[in-house]
């Protein structure tokens, strides 16, 4: 699907779909296990000030599944090559949930082309004794009710009948998420050993009522990346850009601006 904002790129052996809009500094927006669909609005808004790239991860949405990619560590190298391939530099990485995990894995490997990193409700580490939500076991309705705190969002999402294409993406995204993150469930035991290598401005944003990775995970990330700023959003679940879009956008925007000063 190649339109003005939609691009396709072949990396290694497979095609990746990228939504790209705007100009200015580069912002690579990395989606979570649910796919890129609910990030389009945020991407469009950020594109007023940035050159925003929102790819579908390999195996998700319109991107093909590359056989050589089977872990988030693989995806980290993949996106470092992606940055290289597109000749990007001074990239702001913004990763949500599983996308945050990818961003963190990239940053411990190399920050040469990365200007800042924002981890939103990020996967990637495990905090012992803090039970996580199991999105693979919840019914579609339970998933919605557990993802969002804002009742208007819950009602809105539940009232929408997915089209055949959307349903196909939902299924495809679940399979891809399982491929990368089923076990260990949404984390890499080695990641926490190396988070100290992150030497660029870092923002951690979390909802105080996250039912997937409870807010204790924000503190755990902060302990592992001591120079990071932390922003905890009130009355907010796992998806801040849906539950608290304005507060979220404001915090993200001011962090990104600070990195230029």
């Amino acid at each position: 699907m190649a339109t003005q904002d939609n691009h396709q790129l072949e990396i290694y052996d497979s095609m990746v779909q990228i939504f790209r809009r705007g100009s200015g500094q580069t912002l690579l927006l990395l989606h979570g296990a649910g796919g890129s669909a609910n990030l389009k609005k945020l991407a469009a808004k950020l594109a007023e000030d940035y050159d925003v790239l929102l790819p579908d991860h390999p195996g998700f949405g319109l991107s093909e599944q590359s056989k050589r990619l089977s872990s988030v560590s693989d995806l980290a190298f993949y996106y470092l090559d992606f940055i290289q391939e597109l000749g990007l530099k001074d990239v702001h990485l913004v990763g949500l949930s599983m996308g945050g995990w990818i961003a963190a894995e990239m940053a411990i490997r190399s920050t040469a082309k990365v200007k800042s990193i924002t981890l939103v409700s990020s996967a990637g580490i495990h905090v012992k004794g803090v039970p996580k939500g199991d999105l693979f076991l919840w019914s579609p309705e339970e998933l919605v009710r557990n993802l969002y705190v804002n009742q208007d969002v819950v009602d809105d999402v539940l009232s929408q009948e997915p089209t055949s294409e959307e349903l196909e993406f939902m299924v495809k995204n679940r399979v891809a998420a399982a491929r990368y993150a089923w076990h260990p469930r949404f984390y890499n035991p080695d990641l926490e050993k190396w988070l100290h290598r992150i030497d660029i401005p870092t923002l951690i944003i979390w909802g105080d009522q996250d039912k997937i990775f409870p807010v204790e995970y924000a503190s755990a990330f902060k302990n592992l990346i001591p120079h990071a700023q932390t922003q905890i959003l009130k009355d907010c679940g796992h998806v801040p850009h849906m539950d608290q879009p304005e507060a979220f956008y404001h915090r993200l925007k001011s962090f990104l601006s600070e990195t230029n000063s």
Partner: peptide, 22 residues
């Protein structure tokens, strides 16, 4: 059991997962 228990992602083909979701 629930569908999520019976058919975890990747256990069956995409086509049959989609059929069941539909």
């Amino acid at each position: 059991m629930t569908n999520q228990m019976l058919l975890p992602p990747g256990y069956t083909t995409l086509t049959s997962m989609k059929k069941i979701a539909e």
